[in-house]
């Protein structure tokens, strides 16, 4: 063995090849089966992708680095179920490019946030967290009241469709209009949003002002959608109740 190595050390391309081989095995063994073992991701029938407005909110969540403080992953631990709700399933983030599971909880987990608070509360909390939670150390985001840029939304949906998210042609062509409509419950387009994305989509003026489409609308719509895209995790917990 030693002798073998003694010779390998003299051949730079030999070392290169050996390093590549040694450093590839683990990754291949752990990553490839995640695509081949069916039970890894069991996509439930009722799973819906994000609406364009929620997707825009997700991009803002990413842009502001909320993931640096908030996880979106309830671990399979009894106390986490107790505090946050049903544990997160792989299927819940099947359409998430990228996933936002997070690695630090400076703030609480947000995987089950949807519906926990009112839109008004989110607006106030984002503009000035300490006005509602005096002990909070979360940054303030007063600039969320600026208008939402919807120019890239159509292309975003189209790009996501290419990597496997089930957005169809009407969803893509109506993306920007749907974003507007979801924040205007009385508008003509509102029904179209429900038709395309399902009836459990919230259509509201999330920032309280239907006349303007703001980043706040998008971010709050996204936050209110967390944990509501499928019933699957709740059903698992309910099953055991019998």
């Amino acid at each position: 063995m030693l002798k073998l190595h003694y010779n390998l050390e003299k051949v730079s391309m030999g070392l290169v090849a050996a390093i590549i081989v040694a450093a590839s095995i683990g990754g291949i063994v752990e990553i490839a089966p995640l695509f081949t073992i069916d039970e890894t991701v069991d996509v439930p029938d009722d799973l819906r992708p994000h609406t364009p407005l929620e997707l825009a909110g997700r991009e803002i969540y990413i842009r502001e680095g909320c993931y640096a403080c908030h996880s979106q992953m309830v671990r399979s631990l009894a106390d986490e179920l107790d505090r946050y709700g049903p544990y997160s399933l792989a299927s819940e983030s099947a359409y998430d490019h990228p996933m936002l599971w997070g690695s630090k909880r400076t703030g609480p987990d947000l995987a089950r946030l949807g519906g926990k608070y009112s839109d008004d509360w989110h607006v106030q909390h984002l503009i000035d967290p300490r006005s509602v939670v005096p002990a909070s150390i979360m940054p303030a985001y007063p600039w969320m009241t600026r208008s939402l840029d919807t120019k890239l939304l159509g292309d975003s949906l189209a790009t996501l469709a290419r990597v496997g998210v089930p957005y169809n042609a009407p969803m893509i062509s109506e993306a920007a209009a749907d974003a507007q409509a979801q924040s205007r419950p009385d508008s003509d387009g509102a029904d179209g949003v429900l038709e395309r994305y399902g009836n459990n989509v919230a259509v509201r003026a999330f920032d309280g002002d239907p006349s303007r489409l703001t980043e706040m609308d998008a971010l709050v719509a996204y936050l209110q959608s967390l944990g509501t895209l499928t019933e699957a995790p709740y059903e698992i917990l309910a099953e055991g109740d019998q």
């Binding site: 399979s76 179920l81 544990y87 698992i236």
Partner: peptide, 10 residues
């Protein structure tokens, strides 16, 4: 781990 967690929770 899912079953374990639910059991622990119960």
């Amino acid at each position: 781990q899912g079953v374990e967690a639910v059991k622990g929770f119960r």
